[in-house]
Amino acid sequence: MTIRIDKNLCDGCGKAKEPLCVRICPGNLLYKDIDKKAEIRDKGECWDCAGCVKECPKGAIEMYLQPEIDGRGATLRAKKKSEKVEFIIKSGKSAC
């Protein structure tokens, strides 16, 4: 499993030095690209902890299973509501 960043939704956390996802990724895999949006170095290094998915204030990051492990398009997103996290799963069919 790995992540995909929706560049239309990501605003690089505005003026913040580090976008929140870049700040917390345990593998140091995210960075701010030349367009000032979050980007992942190498999708194959992602562990799928979902930290960034939960942290993103714009809901711009989704997780999916790689095709190598039978991924067929289903995605997982999350919304943080104060202390609680709400997860949203979309089945492969509607996502494709």
């Binding site: 345990p26 593998g27 194959g44 562990w47 790689q66 190598e68 492990i69």
Partner: peptide, 15 residues
Amino acid sequence: NNPGAARHKIWYSPF
């Protein structure tokens, strides 16, 4: 267990 781009889909932390 898993190949290629899924190689870090492992149990223990890859970091």
